[in-house]
Amino acid sequence: MSNLEPVSPKTLYKRRQQLRQQRRWNAIRTLWQFFIVASLAGGTGWLMSRPGWIIHDSSAIEIEGTFFLAPDMVRSQLPIDYPKSLVAIPTDQLEAHLKSLDPIADVVIHRQLFPPRLTVQLQEHHPVALLVGNSYTERDSQLYQIPQQQSSPFDLDVTGFIDANGTWLPLTSYQNNTDTTVEELPTLRIIGMRRSYREQWSTLYQQIQQSPVTVTEINWQQIDNLILKTEIGTTYHGPYLPTAFAQQLQTIDQMRSETSQLDPSRVRYIDLRSAETPLIQYYDSLS
């Protein structure tokens, strides 16, 4: 058994003094840390409430990530009462508001202190087709409070655009954007698109994209007969069925190689409702 040396009262007293002093310094350090953090927070809030930290108009809002959308259109959709303190702007609410607009897929808003401004980073829904003369947008036009008959660079009864998932995109969102030319917007046209077709549209568009056949117009006015305008002429497909439609596209692709035997200018339409035995209707046969 080891022998423990007794601790003298003087040594115990010194140790107690050291512990008290250490606790005192810890308390002082904690108090100073609290005052420093509180001062920084208060100072930051005071600075941001000063006139130099006020956003006076939409010119202090930077829009990033737009390609088709006009930045001024995005700014006009931000419900901010100017002038507004930078710290008082509810960025979460602004993000939720912008996400509710059909053309916008995602958005993140950052505050910037030097110089004071808001940065809005967008991810757009990309339009893939032009909607022409259909009833798809009656409800949406009312939602956006815009007329269904809109002026556009297209010589058509245009009611908007649509993305690959069937989301309607208002035409006015893409107007007045000097960075986007008509050539950059989609040229594929859809006639007779309805909301009930949205799920089918996603599959149909993917099939057309994967096919070597060039399609310039989709006429979906008749539910029992999907009509396309292709490089070999107008084609009838019957009701849209993904498996049958894939086979019909293959038939069109095969017929493209036979254009030397087929004069598209004489063809009124090609009936592919039976893809194995396509029926060619010529203008001559109607006279």
Rank of each mutant, 00 (worst) to 15 (best):
A27R: 14
T119R: 12
S59A: 04
Y236Q: 14
H97R: 09
Q207Y: 05
V267S: 00
V120D: 02
R16I: 07
P116F: 02
S85T: 08
S39N: 05
F161D: 03
I270P: 01
Q261F: 00
E199W: 06
W201V: 08
E183W: 11
D92I: 08
V87H: 08
S49N: 15
Y236M: 14
P170V: 09
W25D: 02
N225Q: 02
N26P: 00
L130D: 07
R273S: 01
L156C: 07
S8M: 06
T44R: 01
I270L: 03
M255P: 00
P71D: 01
V87M: 05
L188V: 07
A88M: 09
W46I: 03
I252R: 01
E124W: 03
S202R: 15
W25T: 10
Y82G: 03
P242E: 09
L204G: 12
L171V: 07
L286E: 05
Q200H: 15
Q145G: 12
D72I: 01
T11N: 04
K14M: 10
V182P: 08
S152P: 10
F35I: 14
V87A: 09
D157P: 06
R139W: 14
D263K: 03
E199N: 12
M193Q: 11
R268L: 09
T230S: 13
Q148E: 15
M1G: 15
L94S: 02
F154Y: 15
A27I: 12
N177F: 12
P79C: 03
Q33H: 09
I280V: 11
P6N: 14
K229S: 14
F114L: 12
G42M: 09
A246H: 04
